[in-house]
Amino acid sequence: MSGRFFIIALHEGGRFREETWELVSFARRCGAADPVMMVLSDEGAIEQLACELAHRTGLDVVGLAGSHLRGYSAEAYIRTLVPFFRDASGKIRIAAAHTSRGIDFAPQLSAGIDACCITAVEDAGEGTFIRSLHHGRFRAEVRADRAKVVVTVLPGAFAPDDIAPGNPGKVGIVPAGDISLSTLSRGTRAPVHANMGLTRAEVIVSAGRGLGSGENIRLVTMLSSLFPKSALGATRAVCDQGWLDYSHQIGSTGNTVSPRLYLACGISGAVQHLAGMKNSGMIVAVNTDPDAAIFRVAHYGIVEDLTTFIPLLVDRCLKRE
């Protein structure tokens, strides 16, 4: 597939997000051997960021600089990127990571440059993009019907590719001009619900909506008591329901964990949850639905009703001792 391929490298506090290197793999999967790396920042930081990209990837880098890019806002990114791409002709693909910032600006960028926008992409076909839908039960193969396409790529879908054996790429810094924003960035607040107990636990017993009710939380508590050094985890939905508080949340907006054993109880396996636990040593899933996406990441799966299976499991475990 011909045309130009751009990767927008997202960064915070002077560091690039790890997904940046996965996007290089994605570009190559799409047939673009030499994508152009792009980074947006204020004049003080742009040089160093752009040079780091050029060294790590060996690819050419465009740095877009302006004082309005000191802090992140979707508006700052869109008003910088839209003029850059709007009048470009020919086939253009632009990729960013499907992170909270990637999905914040990508759709608006696409609207500003008459592009197609496809989010949470996890694979590429012959000129097509593939993404999951319906709780991970199916995938959709989608074709863009515009010359320009903006895609956000699911974190973890591609292996990182940031080892450049050759020379660093060329760096070009482009001033983005004076842009005054109507959005005011006011910094970042630390997580309210970080849970050190979860990150240190060897075993995490985790609850999903499939548990059915807040009352059934006692089942996962009972199960976790079998394991020393264990902790209780939960999906976002369980925390939203108030069954457990947010300090237990595992997933992209919660804690990221990699215990020796992750026991997923009634968890369907939405990508946001998988992002927080897929690197666990052993994953065991119990769910009534045999087609739940969690069974495709689990090492062992059990199709059973939790309300009867957990008491049985605990009972048989204690009897054997």
């Binding site: 909270s100 959005t183 006011r186 910094g187 607040r189 949340q249 992209s252 919660g254």
Partner: peptide, 10 residues
């Protein structure tokens, strides 16, 4: 945002 941090804006 990721990890439960919050970006503040007006």
């Amino acid at each position: 945002v990721e990890g439960g941090s919050r970006e503040c804006l007006s």
